[in-house]
Write a protein that binds this DNA or RNA. Structure first.
Lengths: 138, 138
DNA sequence: ATCCTACAATGGACAATGTCTAAGTCAAGC
DNA sequence: GCTTGACTTAGACATTGTCCATTGTAGGAT
């Protein structure tokens, strides 16, 4: 995590309390938070931090490739701090819980040229959906 | 089209002008429209249709499995009328254009039991990202 | 053909999420 | 310790989606 702060400083980031707090929140829990959840936790550490700043900072982290945006199906985007190890997601259709998963094989290779329509394909995101043990029990 | 309307009637749907219009809009263009885009086109055919009705109808079509919700990464969900042939999506990161694609292989089989965490996995959605020919040219 | 009634549509308020701006603040280099 | 431009703030605004009370109507019953 100081890793993260180091990398950011190296990229010319001005280090402010707000940015540090956002980075800490993301790094602290390896869950997938929405922007407003990040904001709520950030307020816990730095009460006067504003929502706009959290949104801005998250956007910057995403452009820098330090954090991934995940669009599962909920309304809000979620932010995934685990950006440096490729992985995919398993989502509970009922409660929305998200787990990181690592399927075997390379889905990118499964898309033949004839199905690429002239796109240069750079990335693939796989979302498995199902029911988690908790919801299945209920 | 009439296929769709037939199926819906068979399922006990009450056939109203509004529902017919929404079905027509979805069936008419095999693109992936947002709810508000569907509404806009529906208004063209039936000016007094309300936004709530379009949202309701889309929700019903989704529960019936006639239409798929697609969460690519834009803010709004998109609706995919091509629900009866399994397929995935190729999205242009710049302009947001979406194409249906058919990768080879079965990604569901690529998720080993050890990576399922007790979930019963029922579905998988694959989103390829890249740059479309138009945006690459620009 | 007309009536009934449950189901559907309406519109407008509300909620959730995200974006923008103008003005104030501060980190970091000098 | 200054200065400066990047950063933050608060809140207005925009977009997307949901809810509810009221009104309308499709389709079966008569």
């Amino acid at each position: 995590m100081s890793d993260l702060l180091e990398r950011l400083r190296g990229r010319g980031w001005r280090m402010t309390a707000q940015r540090r707090v956002v980075a800490e929140v993301l790094d602290g829990e390896h869950v997938h938070l929405t922007a407003d959840e990040v904001h709520a936790r950030a307020v816990g550490k730095l009460p006067e931090i504003s929502r706009a700043t959290v949104y801005n900072t998250l956007g910057e982290l995403v452009s820098l490739g330090e954090v991934l945006e995940v669009a599962t199906d909920k309304r809000a985007k979620r932010y995934d701090p685990n950006a440096h190890q490729p992985h995919h997601h398993l989502v509970c259709a009922q409660c929305g819980a998200i787990r990181d998963v690592h399927p075997v094989g390379n889905p990118l290779a499964d898309l033949p040229d004839s199905e690429r329509f002239g796109f240069s394909v750079s990335d693939v995101e796989v979302t498995y959906r199902g029911t988690c043990p908790n919801c299945a029990a209920a």
